[in-house]
Design a protein around this nucleic acid. Structure first.
Lengths: 287, 287
DNA sequence: AACCGCGTTCCGACATACTGGAAAACAGGC
DNA sequence: GCCTGTTTTCCAGTATGTCGGAACGCGGTT
């Protein structure tokens, strides 16, 4: 099963069905065209669909499968895919013609990491935290009103708690969400979070008042430790990384199986807080 | 200055001039069109150019700069760039409108790493080697008859030996090149290496016989340690990572400033060999 | 051998993505 | 404020990239 940081997605199967989405054209202009039949699409869009599809699907696919998966004409997909293979943006995976994301993407991604202080500095911290505790450690941020994991390092446990790096999840579903929203007024939070995100994965509603109270407690404690909202097996720990103004730019967190005794829980919490404070310091944040 | 593993590029300035290349259409068919004026290009090509440009350039740029840099119409670049920002493939960098590679690329890149045994296993080894020695450590492979660095971890030195991850370099220029070609016949090597690659960065020619002799010695020794061919400051150490058949699939290597005494050189070599053997083992290779 | 399913390649036609050029917004410098 | 150079946005025309559909190739089954 697939579990994400403090927000394990409920057995989010990687089903190969069409990537239902896009069409939310956020053009700045009114877009007078009444959304004609989604006939033809341009190459760039296809390319993006292909990459996203392979990323979400997580495993090598044949051009034909990709075409079916994203609901695009085969001829188009073959065309584009060949171009991308030339560029090493995709790479052949086996002799059956399966393809996967290519090394060029790794190079691009590395450049991205180099460029950004937060991630560059956080990377060794996440690794150290994970190594030291043997648990899965992650760095999480807010991304367009959702929570996403941006760095992850798996723990030593035999059953892998893999994380869906980069998959947006409602803030309300996550332990970290309580911390990431610190400092926002009630009104701001209501405006910020999409209303549907107050529906928890089991279908129940999270009362706003409860959520606000949890945020308050999180801020007061300086960390959160709680059972995952989205699965029955994991406990999550999260600590804030703050900037010079004291607002929370990210959280450092851990995912562990439930069932640890109080002693170990405290120990994990302390280790986490220690690393989080270090990271905040080295970023010039206010501790 | 910029230095790459065992092949520091000679002050390879990152000049913002047009990316002269492509046009080598390797279509399987004769391509009857006599290569018309390079008029219009498709979106996908532009997109690739943009990403490559930002990657090679290494720093955030404005859409306008990108347009100039890749020699594309501004209107086109603005169009595409906006699309990519929506997708988080590019990201705004500052309020002057500069952009850089986006987090999505990091996510894609991570998936790539997860998927491939060699890199997944090699990553902790490279890190460990670098931490233990304080030097820059890298994993290198052959990529279309050239050498490229696929993993890197900077050493603790104050002046950063940054590496051009993913930049193809002639095998002859690199220490690792001697190892990566092990097992190939003279004829195979001649056929494989582009003739122009026997010209060293200083303009001199590398005699084939010398090169072959160096390869033989490398194989016999089981490692190479030599002064970098391409700069005057560094010494490089390389050790082979072999597969079950005993052929060299990659090299683990280190870049150090010159001037270490024999004792330390031996020590570094031993550490390197130790880690390389570990990695080969864990990949099921023949030691 | 002939048949079937599946993955891949080929090809012509048309909608449209890309382009050039010009206008508009912006940023300094005087 | 006014002028000058730069960056960004807008727009309409046409070269061309995308699509559908058909043909091809290959492995396995009857």
């Amino acid at each position: 099963m697939t579990s994400t940081a403090d927000a394990a997605l409920p057995a989010q199967e990687r089903d190969p069905k069409p990537a239902q989405k896009q069409d939310h054209k956020q053009d700045h202009k009114p877009d007078h065209k009444p959304d004609r039949k989604q006939g033809r699409k341009r190459g760039i869009d296809r390319l993006i669909e292909i990459l996203n599809y392979l990323h979400q699907n997580g495993q090598p696919q044949r051009p034909n499968d990709i075409a079916i998966g994203i609901g695009a004409p085969k001829s188009t997909v073959y065309e584009i895919v060949n171009r991308l293979v030339d560029e090493k943006i995709l790479e052949p995976y086996d002799k059956d013609g399966r393809l996967f994301l290519g090394r060029k993407l790794h190079f691009f991604g590395t450049r991205y990491l180099e460029q950004f202080d937060l991630l560059r500095q956080a990377e060794p911290v996440v690794t150290a935290l994970s190594k030291q505790t043997g648990e899965t450690a992650q760095l999480c941020i807010i991304d367009s009103a959702r929570y996403i994991v941006v760095l992850t390092h798996s723990g030593a446990r035999h059953f892998k708690i893999s994380s869906d790096l980069g998959q947006p999840i409602p803030l309300t579903w996550t332990t970290s969400g309580r911390l990431l929203l610190m400092g926002m007024s009630e009104q701001a939070i209501v405006d910020f979070i999409p209303p549907e995100d107050f529906t928890l994965p089991d279908g129940s509603q999270l009362p706003l008042a409860d959520f606000l109270a949890e945020i308050d407690k999180a801020v007061a404690d300086g960390y959160v430790s709680s059972k995952s909202v989205v699965d029955a097996y994991t406990r999550c720990y999260a600590a804030p990384i703050t900037d010079h103004a004291g607002s929370c730019v990210a959280t450092l967190c851990m995912v562990t199986p439930r069932g640890d005794d109080r002693r170990r829980r405290n120990q994990l919490r302390d280790t986490l807080l220690h690393h989080a404070a270090d990271l905040t310091d080295s970023l010039g944040g206010k501790t």
